[in-house]
């Protein structure tokens, strides 16, 4: 049996993610890719993979997979901290662990944060679509959301990892998002713009891979009417008619018709990927 993993417990929402697919937005194809990019790269580094190798991204409840084939596979569980076991025995979180052939690697529910990353030496190699192995939940491109019994092949392992411990970023208790104003800040009242950068919002439980939704004071518009559809960037803070800001994450639509009041720098979005519902959110001028 060739090297791969078989899903034993799929968890709430587990997907395959790499760096995503860029260069296709003009055809309506979202970028997809791991929401916490630094965590994905770190996990890959720890098992000797190229930084862009495909990993599993879990959501709140973790997942469990069995290593198929006879050979052991090096793996690491990072991102949101959780309990990790191999065949029921506790092993280190955030460091490479050797999983024997046939053994089950279980990443438990997140203790802090939302998204866990499971990287395997050799990387996951399902068939790429438009140059990426990422699942895109908006348009359904890429490998499907994991279900029990799914089998995913692994690539050939690279060099033995040279590092075995690295510092993982902590999960912020408060999400501070540096905001570049525009392109449509002129659609909002001065009062709304002041509110946006002074009020405390909270992460809504309706957040997903498309956007981090917020709850808090609604932003009033300075003008009515509809915005003709225009291109959207990662980190765009779009304000739908209910006035509550939505920060676009990796599966965001490529065009949209609600005004974008500002854009959060992409480097701040890893924190957004790990913010549990209820986490306070502050938008600050970049």
């Amino acid at each position: 049996m060739s090297a791969g993993i078989e899903v034993v417990r799929a968890g709430a929402l587990t997907t395959v993610q790499d760096e995503g697919r860029t260069g296709w937005a003009h055809l309506g194809v979202p970028r997809a890719g791991a929401l916490d990019g630094p965590a994905r790269r770190l996990a890959n580094r720890l098992v000797g993979n190229a930084p862009d190798a495909a990993v599993l991204e879990t959501t709140l409840t973790g997942c469990a997979v069995r290593v198929t084939g006879n050979r052991p596979v090096w793996a690491v569980v990072g991102g949101a901290p959780c309990r990790v076991t191999v065949d029921g025995r506790p092993v280190a979180w955030g460091s490479p662990v050797r999983v024997p052939g046939g053994a089950v690697l279980d990443a438990g529910p997140a203790v802090h944060g939302v998204r866990g990353y499971l990287a395997f030496a050799g990387g996951l190699v399902p068939e790429p679509v438009l140059g990426s192995r990422s699942a895109d939940l908006l348009s359904g491109l890429g490998p499907p959301v994991l279900r029990e019994g799914h089998v995913l092949p692994l690539g050939r392992p690279g060099d033995t990892p040279g590092v075995d411990t690295v510092p993982w970023p902590g999960v912020p208790a408060e999400l501070v998002l540096p905001l570049h104003r525009g392109p449509r800040d002129d659609w909002f009242t001065d009062r709304a713009l002041r509110t946006l950068t002074t009020a405390v919002y909270r992460v809504s439980e309706r957040s997903n891979r498309i956007g981090l939704r917020t709850e808090g004071p609604a932003l009033g518009r300075a003008r009515g009417g509809e915005l003709p559809s225009e291109g959207m960037v990662l980190g765009a803070v779009q304000v739908p008619p209910d006035g509550l800001p939505v920060v676009f994450l990796n599966d965001h639509p490529t065009t949209g018709g609600y005004p974008v009041v500002g854009v959060v720098a992409a480097s701040a979005l890893a924190g957004a990927a790990q913010a549990v519902p209820g986490t306070p959110v502050r938008f600050v001028d970049a």
Partner: peptide, 15 residues
């Protein structure tokens, strides 16, 4: 640039 995304009355240049 990485992406050229036309809209109804706009063109977005990303990257």
């Amino acid at each position: 640039v990485r992406e050229i995304v036309p809209g109804a009355r706009t063109v977005l240049l990303d990257g």
